[in-house]
């Protein structure tokens, strides 16, 4: 069974969860040998930018020791042979260049999304 997880909302509770909950979920599924792919669209394409740093949160004496590292989660997914796709128009609209992004991600035109979705048995829009 081929599964496509589509993520379009970025940084949803990532500081509290120390991760994106859908990226985390996808990593667990991949660890269970699910055939899963990830498609980033909308604001979630920002997850590909490797120069991001969510560290530094502090409330009084409390300091966040382990901030979220969403770009590292993408790298981990790629390392586990999980296909990662991103909508190229969503990257362009945000001024995100290929040189800003993690290597190995497949940019796809919005017009091709229908064809891409057709390749999967289950498609989950998160």
């Amino acid at each position: 069974m081929q599964v496509l997880n589509i993520v379009d909302q970025a940084y949803r509770a990532t500081v509290e969860e120390q991760d994106d909950t859908v990226l985390w979920f996808t990593q667990v599924l991949r660890g269970a040998e699910a055939n899963v792919a990830l498609l980033l669209r909308g604001s979630a394409v920002n997850y590909l930018v490797f120069r991001q740093d969510a560290g530094g949160l502090a409330f009084g004496a409390w300091k966040q020791a382990q901030p979220p590292r969403v770009a590292a989660s993408i790298v981990a997914l790629l390392a586990s042979h999980t296909p990662v796709l991103a909508v190229e128009e969503d990257l362009a609209e945000r001024g995100i260049r290929t040189s800003d992004c993690i290597a190995g991600v497949q940019a796809v035109p919005r017009a091709k999304l229908g064809e891409i979705v057709e390749r999967f048995d289950r498609v989950w829009q998160w």
Partner: peptide
Amino acid sequence: SPVDFLKMVKESVNTLVVPT
């Protein structure tokens, strides 16, 4: 865990994710 979800999916004719 999400692994249980994966089992559920495999035992089902279809799956609906209702995200926040």
